[in-house]
Design a protein around this nucleic acid. Structure first.
Length: 324
DNA sequence: ACCGGTCCCTGTTAGC
DNA sequence: TGCTAACAGGGACCGG
C-alpha cells in the first residue's frame, strides 16, 4: 500500500524519467479514475494535451506534476494531481523499464489489465513514451487542479509547498493536507503541540492527514511499536516527550523504508520502474499477528480499529486503562 | 472547529 | 466444487 516512502519512490522516478516531456494525448479507460475534476474525463484530456510536465512534487501521499505551457517557462498555474489510493501505480513505458505480463522483460506496448489512464508523451529525455496509471482497487485517482498559495502558517514564509518544488503553491485539494514528517519545513514542536491539543487516540491523530501527512496504517503501527506506545493512548494525556518519540519513530521508519524502495506485499505496489520494494521483510509488527515480538518475544496482537487492523505487542505497548 | 462513523471500489481468500 | 462473505484501506463527506 503506498504510503509516504512508496509515493516518494514514485515521485523520484517521475522526476528522472518524465519531467520535461510534453503530453501528446490522453486515453481514459475508466472514468471513475478521473475524479474531483471539474468537467470530467473530456475536460481532463483537454487540459493536459500540449502541456509540459515541468516538475514532480509530493506532500504526504499526494503527488503532482505542475503543467508548463510547452512553449515558455512561465510559472505553472495548474498541475496534474495524483493519489495512488491503495493499489495505484504510475508506470513509465518507452524508457525500457516497465515490465510486461507477469513481470516479463520490459514491454513498451503492453496494456496492464488494470490500466485506467494512459498519457502519451513526447520529448522525455529518458525516451519515455507513455505514463500509465494502473489501479486494481480504484481508490486512486487523477485530476487537473489549479495551484493555490499554501495556507500553512507554521512553515517559514515562501517555503516550498512540497518535496521536489521551489514554489509555495499546491493543488487546491491538497491545501488542507498537513506537511509530512520528512518535509524540511515541518515545525516538529508545533506538531507535538497540535497533537496534544487533539482529543482522540494517538493512532487516529497519526492517520489524520490534516494533522500530519504521509503516515498510513502500516507505518503507524511500526512507529507506535518502536516508540512503545499503545495505539489507543489519548493524545491529550500523552506526555510531549512520548508524542515526540512517536513522530520521530514514524519519520525514522519511513526513512528506512525509503532507502529500501518502499514496502510491498503482493505486487500491488510497484515503483515507477515496475519493481517491488523490499521493506516488507523489515516490518516489526504489521501483519504479524501471533508471531513473536522482535523485542520481547510476546505474540503480536491484532485489534479491530477504525474498520481496519492494528498490530501491537501486548507487553511493549501496554494498553491504557479502560480499553479492552 | 473538531470528532467519529460510513462509504467508495475490486480482486483474493477463507469458510460453508 | 461453487457460492458468499470478509478483507485490504485513504480520504471525502456528513451528522452530532
Amino acid at each position: 500500500m503506498p504510503e509516504l516512502p512508496e509515493v516518494e519512490t514514485v515521485r523520484d522516478g517521475l522526476d528522472r524519467l518524465v519531467v520535461g516531456a510534453v503530453v501528446r494525448d490522453v486515453e481514459v479507460f475508466r472514468d471513475y479514475s478521473v475524479r474531483r475534476h471539474d468537467g470530467g474525463p473530456g475536460s481532463f484530456r483537454d487540459q493536459l494535451v500540449g502541456r509540459r510536465l515541468s516538475a514532480a512534487v509530493r506532500r504526504g501521499k499526494f503527488l503532482w506534476l505542475p503543467l508548463g505551457s510547452g512553449v515558455d517557462d512561465d510559472a505553472p498555474a495548474a498541475a496534474l494531481l495524483a493519489h495512488l489510493g491503495m493499489s495505484g501505480q504510475l508506470l513509465v513505458r518507452g524508457a525500457g523499464v516497465a515490465p510486461g505480463r507477469d513481470g516479463a522483460a520490459p514491454d513498451d506496448e503492453w496494456r496492464h489489465p488494470h490500466l485506467r489512464v494512459r498519457l502519451h508523451l513526447a520529448g522525455a529525455p529518458s525516451g519515455a513514451r507513455y505514463l500509465d496509471f494502473v489501479d486494481q482497487r480504484t481508490f486512486g485517482h487523477l485530476s487537473v487542479q489549479d495551484l493555490v498559495p499554501d495556507g500553512d502558517t507554521t512553515a517559514p514564509p515562501g517555503a516550498p509547498a512540497g518535496y521536489g518544488s521551489d514554489l509555495p503553491v499546491l493543488p487546491a485539494p491538497v491545501a488542507h493536507i498537513a506537511r509530512d514528517l520528512l518535509d524540511p519545513s515541518l515545525d516538529l514542536d508545533a506538531l507535538v503541540r497540535r497533537v496534544r491539543r487533539r482529543r482522540t487516540q494517538i493512532k487516529r491523530a497519526l492517520l489524520d492527514q490534516t494533522v500530519v501527512s504521509g503516515v498510513g496504517n502500516i507505518y503507524a503501527d511500526e512507529a507506535l511499536w518502536r516508540a512503545q506506545v499503545h495505539w489507543g493512548r489519548p493524545t491529550d494525556r500523552l506526555p510531549a516527550a512520548q508524542v515526540r518519540r512517536v513522530l520521530e519513530s514514524a519519520a525514522a521508519v519511513m526513512r528506512e523504508a525509503l532507502a529500501q524502495g518502499g514496502t510491498s506485499f503482493d505486487d500491488l505496489y510497484v515503483n515507477v520502474n515496475g519493481q517491488s520494494g523490499y521493506f516488507e521483510r523489515s516490518l516489526a509488527v504489521y501483519g504479524r499477528e501471533n508471531e513473536p515480538c522482535r523485542r520481547c518475544g510476546t505474540l503480536v496482537r491484532r485489534d479491530a480499529f477504525m474498520n481496519r487492523s492494528s498490530f501491537s505487542c501486548p507487553v511493549c505497548q501496554p494498553r491504557p486503562r479502560g480499553l479492552r
